[in-house]
Amino acid sequence: MACGEKGAMLRELINLFRSGEPLQAMCENFAKMLGLSLELVKKGGEVFFAQSAEEEKRRAIQRQDVEVNKLERKIRKQVVVHLSVSANAVDLPYCLVLMSLVKDVERIGDYAKDLAALVDLGAAPLPEGELLQELQALRQQIERDFDVACRVFNTCDREGAVALIRQGREALEGCERLIREIAHSSLEPGAAVKLALAARFYQRIAGHVLNLLSGVVMPLHRLDYYDEKDIEQATGRQ
């Protein structure tokens, strides 16, 4: 073994035994995961609305999705090791929340990838009109909400999360309404399928963002519940 390699290994070993804050490391990885998923949603939207089949963009989306999946597994391992080694009951709720939310963020990445993959349904351009405009408006709102949600989650901003949940529920309803409108429209089948699926994917993305926000507002056992009644119950008990 060369001297340089020995030195590198020794440094690696010393770094292993250096104290770090385990929860902090998990937080950082989760923040990274959120950032990557947000980018994925934006890129997926770009590919879908431009109906561009650019290979490079599609490959970049896939690479980023793989990164998100790796981070999901890494955080899960960190949680298991942390709970096993430290046997610290104080950290248990936060660890369980992370365990649940990494799944939501991973699903967001999957839906973003699926959104880009809708291009494969056919090269026909998206039908211009009110329905497309509605979908674009929903896309903007959901991307904006997701961006703010990342900051709200990282800073544990409770009030911000409640406001965003109320706003996000409107986006969910908007997606549902749009799907019904598409079903009753006179669009040709290929275009209707593309728009309906995109609306459905954005609805699911919005739903997972709301799950993420429920982690800031709700106690652990009410995670993923964000109806008005649930929010009032949680905020009223502060």
Binding site: C27, V97, F153, C156, Q238
Partner: peptide, 10 residues
């Protein structure tokens, strides 16, 4: 009860 599940590192 009612405490949010997330919190900053202790």
């Amino acid at each position: 009860m009612g405490e949010p599940a997330t919190r900053p590192p202790h």
